[in-house]
């Protein structure tokens, strides 16, 4: 692949603006993982779209782009489709990485970057609908990772607690066959799990939104384009965990927040590919 920046500290572009709001912790996550992230306002990027190609990775962060009006991610995706489609296509063709979290994932799904079937990255195939419970929710869930997925972000990861903070996270389609196909391709790298059994679940609250087949995130068939609803960038400190006080006493607190692993995987991939 093309080298962008120092290969040891790959450059990551984080798009900001229009109500996206997780830029600070996302920047921190990439930095801790060894990358060199830049925050770039969407307007500045659209004014000079070729800037995108100086980066090895792109992140669509969480937040409330356009207030989630008209459906989460719709307005932001419309803007990207209209002004950045060709550059995104080239970025993907160049074999680079794209990560989307929460609203960023919703934007990617609306745009069609995910699931990115049949080489078509600009046709929406699935939906992220309002949570089955009907309201926005913030609490911690357990994520399990599917070892068969080609996803470079989730390679070798053990189940992990992460916070969810969304109102529209229920992965949905009217075509079950599409999900079969996705699963066969390894396009479902992570699911909501029952922490007691480790098994994927449809039961609230472990599955917080009623997502079909407990799907928490999707990747494209190459595994380089990945999005998920839970927030790995919100678990960078051990003290972010809601039971850190118990973990401290029992001596089982991790040295760093576990969310960092997803970013480390991405950086390792960029350093070694």
């Amino acid at each position: 692949m093309l080298i962008c920046g120092n290969q040891m500290n790959p450059k990551i572009l984080i798009i900001t603006g229009y109500g996206l709001n997780c830029e600070a912790e996302s920047q921190r996550a990439w930095t801790l993982a060894g990358a060199a992230p830049d925050l770039v306002h969407l307007n500045d990027l659209l004014a000079q779209p070729e800037r995108l190609h100086a980066y090895a990775g792109l992140m669509f962060i969480g937040g409330f782009s356009y207030g989630d009006h008209m459906g989460s991610g719709l307005a932001f995706a419309a803007r990207l489709r209209h002004h950045l489609r060709a550059d995104l296509a080239r970025f993907i063709a160049d074999g680079k990485l794209i990560l989307g979290v929460c609203n960023g994932f919703q934007i990617m799904v609306k745009l069609g970057l995910l699931p990115g079937l049949d080489g078509d990255y600009f046709a929406q195939r699935v939906a992220l609908m309002p949570n089955a419970g009907g309201v926005f929710q913030n609490f911690w869930v357990t994520l399990r990772f599917e070892p068969r997925s080609p996803c470079v972000f989730t390679r070798g990861l053990d189940p992990m607690p992460l916070p969810i903070r969304h109102g529209e996270g229920r992965l949905f389609t009217l075509e079950p066959a599409l999900l079969d196909r996705l699963e066969a391709l390894g396009g479902v790298p992570c699911r909501y799990a029952d922490p007691a059994t480790g098994a994927a679940t449809q039961a609230f609250p472990h599955n917080p939104n009623g997502s079909l087949r407990a799907i928490a995130g999707l990747c494209d068939p190459t595994g380089r384009i990945f999005g998920l609803m839970p927030h790995p960038e919100a678990y960078l400190f051990p003290e972010n965990h809601p039971q850190w006080d118990f973990q401290y006493l029992r001596g089982n607190a991790p040295a760093q927040g576990l969310g960092l692993h997803l970013f480390r995987n991405a950086v390792t991939f960029l350093q070694t590919s």
């Binding site: 709001n21 997780c22 600070a24 912790e25 921190r28 969480g62 937040g63 309201v135 926005f136 929710q137 913030n138 609490f139 916070p163 903070r165 927030h231 960038e233 919100a234 678990y235 960078l236 400190f237 003290e239 972010n240 809601p242 850190w244 006080d245």
Partner: peptide, 17 residues
């Protein structure tokens, strides 16, 4: 639970423990 308490990732002791 309908309020986001964790954006920015700075929380230590949360409203619910």
């Amino acid at each position: 639970r309908q309020y986001d308490g964790e954006v920015k990732g700075l929380s230590v002791v949360k409203p619910f423990v």
